[in-house]
Amino acid sequence: MINDMARIMNDLQVVTSTLSPEVDMQKLEVRLEEIMSNYEIHRKSEKDIENDIQDKIELYLSARKVEGLAKETIRGYTGELNRFAKFINKPVVQITTSDIRKYLASNENNMASTVDRKLSAIKTFFSWLVTEELLLRDPSTKIKPPKKPKRLPKGLSVEELEVVRESCISRRERAMMEVMYSTGCRLSEVQRMKIDDINMQEMNMRVIGKGDKERIVYISFKCLHHVKGYLNIRKDDCEQLFVTERRPIRAMTNRAIERSVDQIEQRTKLSKKLTPHTFRHTFGTLAMENGADLADVQQLMGHEDPSTTLVYAHVSENRKKQAHKKYHMQ
C-alpha cells in the first residue's frame, strides 16, 4: 500500500509539473482519470485498520518522560490511559467524542473529581497527538470538565492538632507529623525528603514538588527539635529523612507513611479522617486564619494556580465578626 501511494504521488507530481499557470481543468481531469485507472482503491473496513491506541499511548508516555514529567504523574497517566484503551478498544483515528463520554459515564459511582482526573489525562493525550501531527482532530475538545462540589478542606483545629501530637508514640511518628504540618508538604514531597535537604541554621528545607520543581519550605523550632531527636537515634547511613524501622533500612514508601499516619489516627479517636494531606490542609487553613497573605501561602504550598490556594481563604465566624468590628464604618 505504501509503495502504491508513492507511485500515485509521483505520477501526480509529473502531471502538475507540466501544467502552465492557466490550467485547463478539463484536460487535467482526463489526465487524472488516465492515471487513476492504473490503480484499484478501496476504503478500509474497521477490521482492516490497525488498532494502534496502545502504541500511541506508549509513544506519548515516552515523550512525557523525556520532558521530565514526575514519576507519580507518569504512573497516574499510565493507569488512566490503559483503562481508557481497554474500554474503547479501537484505533485512535476512529475514537469519537461519544466514545469518550461513554467511558467517563461507565461507572456511576465515580465522584466528579475522579471523572475530572480521567478527562484531564485523556485531553492531555489527544492534545499531544494533534500537536505532534499524529492525529488531525481532537475528539475530547468539546467535552467540558464536570462541576465539582465546593467543599472546604478538612484541616485540624489547634486543639485537635495537640491531640494528634500526644498520640504519637515513636520519635519517627512525631518527627514525621511535625514535618508534614510545619512545611505543609504533599505526601510525595515528604517521601522524597533527604537529610541533606535540611538547613538547620536557616530552619528551612529544600523540597522537590510537582513537575520536579524545587522550592524552599520552612520548619518551626518544635519541628526542628523533633527531627533532631529522630535523627539522633538513627544508626543507619541512609540519606532519606524518613526510613523503615526494619532492615534492610531504606526510604519509606508513600504507602508506609500513610500506614504510619493511620496508626496515629487510631489512637486519637478523632471524628476527622487523618491522612498526610490532612496536615497540609491544616497548615493552609491555620496560616490563613492567622492572617497570612494569600500569595505567601501559595508559594509555601507550591500551588501554581492562585485559585487552588483560595480554598483556604474561608474565615471562621469569629474572625468575620472581628473584621466587621475593625473595618466597618459607623
Results as ranks from 00 to 15, higher is better:
Glu173Cys: 01
Gln13Lys: 14
Lys235Met: 14
Ala63Phe: 07
Glu289Val: 07
Ser120Asp: 04
Ala70Glu: 04
Ser188Leu: 02
Ile41Gly: 08
Gly284Tyr: 08
Ile195His: 00
Ile53Leu: 15
Ile257Asp: 07
Lys123Ile: 01
Asp116Val: 01
Lys235Asp: 15
Gly184Asn: 09
Ala323Lys: 06
Ile264Ala: 00
Ala121Trp: 03
Glu50Pro: 04
Phe125Pro: 11
Asp197Pro: 01
Thr278Glu: 02
Val190Ile: 15
Arg280Cys: 01
Asn38Gly: 10
Leu119Val: 11
Leu28Tyr: 14
Asp52Lys: 10
Ile169Asp: 01
Leu294Cys: 02
Ser127Met: 00
Leu129Trp: 11
Met193Ala: 11
Cys185Ser: 15
Val92Ile: 13
Leu32Thr: 02
Thr73Phe: 11
Ala105Tyr: 11
Ile74Arg: 09
Met176Asn: 06
Ser98Trp: 08
Arg101Phe: 08
Glu67His: 12
Ser157Lys: 12
Lys123Pro: 03
Asn82Tyr: 10
Ile95Lys: 03
Val15Gln: 13
Ala175Gly: 00
Ile57Arg: 03
Thr275Lys: 10
Arg75His: 10
Arg250Glu: 09
Lys194Asp: 12
Arg165Leu: 03
Asn254Ala: 07
Leu59Trp: 13
Gln13Glu: 12
Glu40His: 04
Glu189Asp: 10
Arg171Val: 06
Ile57Pro: 00
Met252Ile: 05
Arg31Lys: 13
Gln201Asn: 14
Met200Thr: 13
Met205Ser: 01
Gly284Gln: 10
Leu161Tyr: 12
Met329Leu: 05
Glu133Arg: 11
Thr244Cys: 12
Glu166Lys: 14
Glu40Phe: 08
Gly184Gln: 12
Thr285Val: 12
Thr278Phe: 04
Leu136Glu: 15
Arg250Pro: 00
Glu214Tyr: 05
Val23Gly: 14
Arg137Val: 09
Ala256Phe: 04
Leu286Glu: 04
Gly302Ser: 05
Leu81Ile: 03
Lys272Thr: 05
Leu136Trp: 02
Met9Gln: 13
Lys118His: 11
Lys272Pro: 01
Glu189Arg: 04
Lys47Pro: 01
Arg255Gln: 13
Gly302Met: 08
Val227Asp: 03
Asp48Glu: 15
Glu50Arg: 14
Asp212Gln: 07
Lys147Pro: 02
Thr275His: 03
Ile35Trp: 06
Gly209His: 06
Cys238Lys: 10
Met36Glu: 02
Glu50Asn: 05
Gln330Ile: 13
Cys223Thr: 08
Ser220Leu: 08
Trp128Val: 01
Gln298Phe: 05
